[in-house]
Design a protein around this nucleic acid. Sequence first.
DNA 1: AGATACTTAAACAGCG
DNA 2: TCGCTGTTTAAGTATC
Length: 401
Amino acid sequence: MHEYPPGLMGPIIGMSPDKKAESPGAQGVCGAGTLPEAESASSPMATSLDQIGRAGALSVVAGESEDDELTNLNWLHENLLQNFTLGGEAQPINSPLFDIEGGGGSPHSNTTSSTSSVSAGSERDPYKSKPTFSFSLLIYMAIEQSPSKSLPVKDIYGWILKHFPYFSSAPTGWKNSVRHNLSLNKCFRKVERSIGKTNGKGSLWCVHPEFRPMLMQALKKQHFPNAHAFCTPPASPPSASSPPHHLFTSEQCCALKECDFDAATAMMLLKSASEQNIDSYPDDQEGPIDLSRRDLVVVSRDPKQDHNYSSTPVPPCPRQMPPSQPDNFSLALHHDQERGGCTRWPRSPLQGPLLGKRSRRDSRPDVDEELKEAAGSLLHLAGIRTSLVASRRKSRKLSRK
DNA sequence: AGATACTTAAACAGCG
DNA sequence: TCGCTGTTTAAGTATC
């Protein structure tokens, strides 16, 4: 279909037509080479991912354990959850804490009833209520959580099942949706498994570093819209080098009423702070990110980069991207290739709204908001969660009827 | 109301 | 042959 203008990276990921070009045997998606088995998570990453890292996402690089230690979901599960629960008890990874829908205790997971939910009346069963995350975000979280930052489809299934028990009892169609997303979403790249290692079908999938900030933003946007309203930010901004769980007291946790995001979101946000620093502005920033600096927290300071979700170069459109285009992540979705890169921006930001459907709510990049959201996410992680999005959706659904 | 985002279903082909 | 993976298309729903 559309061709990638010369000069850029070309069909990084190619969605439909593009992806086809990178049929099996093609170069490693993420740049080149192959990847070690994701299953061998403990082993350091190598080759292509390393190159990805060079391309921007240093966190993807294997040996770089320190960053991962503090920012990935493993760290979250291993440390944060254990040190930061209202009930004083560590939550299992599959605890309702991870049920972004704010579901109540499930027969399987409510180890600590007091931590399951704070929102009155939300007695959703995580085994029955569907996560409010889109499949794309679920995939993103799954991949990001993996030590190697790449997973085969099967493991993505597994991650989703593990953290969102809803799918275990849901029709298997969701797997199709996962694959559908992987294939059509430019944010995800297929990586060939290591040469010689033929065990296991299919390829590994990783997050395209170029889109990571946008994914992060999308993740945040999807579940943080109301965070600022009730999330109490820490007195002083955290530093990237200090574990977030040190930032809040239980009192602060209790102060939170309804934060519509979850642990994964929290991690993503926190992670993004440092990664964005690396991914998006390698030339500008080095070392630990200072969240007190607004310019460092913005997902992307380059509107073009920020909003051009496609791997194609900045569209020749004379328009600028909205300063805070939300849901950039969505721009990488499948229909995108059909629109030829810039078509997602029918209007200049100067022309007013229409920034993107889901973004008008919070259309201003603000570090304070980021911090609030981060704070809220962590508090939420501690067991406070709600179901604003889900309930909102359902209520709308009901009102329609 | 229209555009967009997202989900779901299905068909199909390739591969182990 | 079967099941999994990956791609693609289409349709429907939800949101703005």
